[in-house]
Computed example of a mutant assay.
Amino acid sequence: MNALAPFDTVQITEIAEEIFAAMIDGEPGLLGPWLDGPITLVDPLHAWVEMHDVFSGRVVLSTETSTAHELVRGLLGMGPDEAVSEDDLVDAFGEVANVVGGNLKALLPTQGRLTLPQVDRTAPATVGSVRFDGAVLSWRGLPLEISVWSI
């Protein structure tokens, strides 16, 4: 863990595992460490929230757009072949980032402010930011990265 970051890869992973089991999968064990080396996203989708208090940072979830569609289907209880609207994609993937960020914020010594989630195909700017920590995870065999940045 970076000396300035209030949480580490283990905590990020544990929080994500709990959230996915409760919100998306209905059971534990479908989210775990990614063991296949570095990931390269071809058609990425990013969702993020920012924390403002003692620690000012951004929590970013990044995955393939097709994986985000699967996450949305799981979260909304949709069938495997149901079409995901752009509104549902933005709302639901943003909500996952919001819940992950909110749970990480709960680890801070004081409870500051969490922004509304943002969702975009382009990652948020990192100029002037430092990547504190993160986790590359496998959800049902598909890559998902959660990273924490200073802002």
Rank of each mutant, 00 (worst) to 15 (best):
1 M>T: 11
1 M>G: 13
2 N>Y: 15
2 N>H: 15
4 L>Y: 03
4 L>N: 11
5 A>G: 09
6 P>T: 13
7 F>R: 03
7 F>N: 01
8 D>E: 12
9 T>D: 11
9 T>A: 15
11 Q>R: 12
12 I>G: 00
14 E>N: 15
14 E>L: 14
14 E>D: 15
16 A>E: 02
16 A>N: 02
17 E>I: 08
19 I>R: 06
19 I>E: 07
21 A>L: 04
21 A>F: 11
22 A>H: 15
25 D>V: 13
25 D>R: 10
27 E>C: 10
27 E>G: 13
28 P>D: 08
28 P>Y: 08
29 G>S: 06
30 L>S: 05
30 L>P: 01
30 L>D: 09
31 L>R: 05
31 L>Q: 01
32 G>A: 10
33 P>W: 11
34 W>E: 00
36 D>I: 08
36 D>G: 02
38 P>K: 10
38 P>R: 08
40 T>M: 05
41 L>I: 09
41 L>D: 09
41 L>Q: 10
42 V>P: 02
43 D>A: 10
43 D>C: 02
44 P>E: 05
44 P>I: 01
44 P>Y: 04
45 L>N: 10
45 L>H: 06
46 H>G: 12
48 W>E: 08
48 W>A: 10
49 V>W: 02
49 V>S: 04
52 H>D: 14
53 D>C: 04
53 D>K: 08
53 D>N: 09
54 V>T: 12
56 S>M: 03
58 R>N: 03
58 R>Y: 06
59 V>T: 01
60 V>S: 03
60 V>A: 01
62 S>L: 08
62 S>V: 03
66 S>T: 15
68 A>H: 00
68 A>K: 05
71 L>T: 04
72 V>I: 02
73 R>L: 02
73 R>I: 05
74 G>M: 06
75 L>V: 02
76 L>M: 08
78 M>L: 14
79 G>A: 13
79 G>Q: 14
79 G>P: 08
80 P>C: 12
80 P>V: 15
81 D>K: 12
82 E>I: 05
82 E>S: 11
84 V>T: 06
85 S>N: 06
85 S>Y: 00
86 E>C: 03
86 E>M: 01
88 D>W: 05
90 V>P: 05
91 D>L: 07
92 A>M: 00
92 A>E: 03
93 F>T: 00
94 G>C: 02
97 A>R: 05
98 N>Y: 00
101 G>W: 12
102 G>T: 03
102 G>D: 05
105 K>Y: 08
105 K>I: 07
107 L>V: 00
111 Q>M: 12
111 Q>P: 11
112 G>E: 05
112 G>A: 12
113 R>C: 12
114 L>V: 14
115 T>P: 13
115 T>R: 12
116 L>M: 14
116 L>F: 13
118 Q>C: 13
119 V>E: 02
119 V>Q: 04
120 D>R: 09
120 D>M: 03
121 R>P: 10
122 T>E: 14
122 T>K: 14
124 P>H: 00
124 P>V: 10
127 V>H: 15
129 S>R: 10
130 V>E: 14
131 R>A: 11
131 R>L: 12
132 F>D: 10
133 D>P: 07
134 G>M: 09
135 A>N: 03
135 A>I: 02
135 A>S: 13
137 L>W: 06
138 S>Q: 06
138 S>E: 04
140 R>Y: 03
142 L>T: 13
142 L>A: 15
144 L>A: 06
145 E>S: 13
147 S>V: 08
148 V>E: 04
148 V>L: 12
148 V>N: 01
148 V>Y: 04
148 V>G: 00
149 W>P: 01
